[in-house]
């Protein structure tokens, strides 16, 4: 790992000032950043430790449930407000990483984590995300873990988070601070598709800081489920994962929220599927039909073709759990 300067500012102003300089990077939990620095994938000149900022509260506010960006993944997953109002988020968090990593990883850091694509991680391989213009190793290579939606000619990587899949489904918003102002964007607009610039994972501008996320109140708590299909029972990234929340009243689905992980460069929200479910009864047939809608536009490569079958199967299965059929 390259040497770097380490600073630990105690105010938001000082943090914003420090990260406005090129070569600076924020460190919070460090679970992904230190990993990437060890591999030489990233080599910042300066680390700005933001752990002294007061951003680790979970409370109810005007916009629903607010979760500070520095709240630990483990803390969020055990928080009584989260468990009560948005169990889907807790389920997704518990499906991610390991207890130790969740004790280090923060909400903001989880959003900022980079793809686990092997070509991105290996500096001896081509990767447009790591080194723009060097090519994509995965496209003609070993792409079993890779995207089937929203890919570009530059990149087919997937976003590895579980938490983000749940937040995308739950209509969360992200609060971001810049040097001059604060802004809020829908969570589903935070991450981006690779397009021509796969080196950019999201819409956070240089010098900006994530303050937290807000989840609006909803009626999904009773009928929520997160299902993660992976190569082993725990401590593995998703082949496909699905977050589902259903608002069922008098036996009819009033509202549905669905997002998928492991299939795209960002958490893949399934708006069309949601619409198709509204007004329907929670039945296996309806869920299977809805799952097929999700697959429109999916495109597989040599090693990830199984996702074309696994993704709809996982959607239907998740809906069955959420809908109380299992």
């Amino acid at each position: 790992m390259k040497q770097f300067q380490y600073i630990h500012p105690t105010s938001q102003t000082a943090v914003l000032d420090a990260i406005s300089k090129p070569g600076s990077k924020i460190i919070a939990g460090g679970t992904n950043l230190v990993d990437l620095m060890k591999k030489g994938v990233t080599a910042p000149d300066k680390l700005v430790d933001i752990n002294s900022l007061p951003l680790s509260t979970v409370n109810t506010g005007p916009d629903g449930l607010h979760i500070g960006a520095l709240t630990l993944n483990s803390v969020v997953s055990e928080n009584s407000l989260v468990l009560d109002k948005h169990p889907l988020l807790a389920m997704a968090l518990k499906a991610g990483a390991s207890p130790q990593l969740r004790n280090m990883a923060t909400v903001g850091g989880n959003m900022m984590q980079r793809t686990r694509c092997a070509y991105f991680y290996d500096t001896a391989m081509p990767c447009n995300k790591r080194t723009p213009g060097s090519g994509c190793g995965a496209m003609g290579g070993y792409n079993r873990m890779h995207a089937i939606f929203g890919t570009s000619t530059q990149c087919i990587a997937v976003h590895p988070s579980d938490m983000c899949v749940a937040l995308a489904a739950l209509d969360a918003t992200v609060t971001i601070a810049g040097k001059k102002s604060k802004r809020r964007i829908p969570f589903t607009d935070f991450h981006r598709l690779p397009g021509e610039h796969p080196e950019m994972d999201n819409h956070l501008a240089p010098g900006e800081l994530i303050l937290g996320v807000d989840i609006p109140d909803n009626n999904f708590a009773k009928n929520s489920y997160y299902l993660k299909v992976r190569d082993r029972q725990s401590y593995a990234f998703a082949l496909v994962s699905v977050a589902a929340g259903l608002d069922i009243q008098n036996g009819i689905i009033k509202k549905a929220r669905l997002a998928m992980g492991g299939v795209a460069h960002k958490p893949w929200r399934l708006f069309e599927v949601e619409k198709s479910l509204e007004g329907k009864t929670p039945s296996e047939d309806n869920f299977k039909a809805a799952a097929q809608i999700a697959m429109q536009g999916a495109k597989a490569r040599e090693f990830n073709a199984f996702k074309l079958k696994l993704a709809p199967a996982t959607i239907a299965e998740t809906l069955k759990h959420a809908g109380g059929l299992v």
Partner: peptide, 21 residues
């Protein structure tokens, strides 16, 4: 944090070849 100048050169995302010396 002591007030000191960074002693590593800037080098973007790739490790720099310049040395501290």
């Amino acid at each position: 944090m002591p007030d000191k100048k960074p002693v590593t050169p800037t080098g973007g995302e790739e490790p720099s070849n310049a040395t501290r010396r």
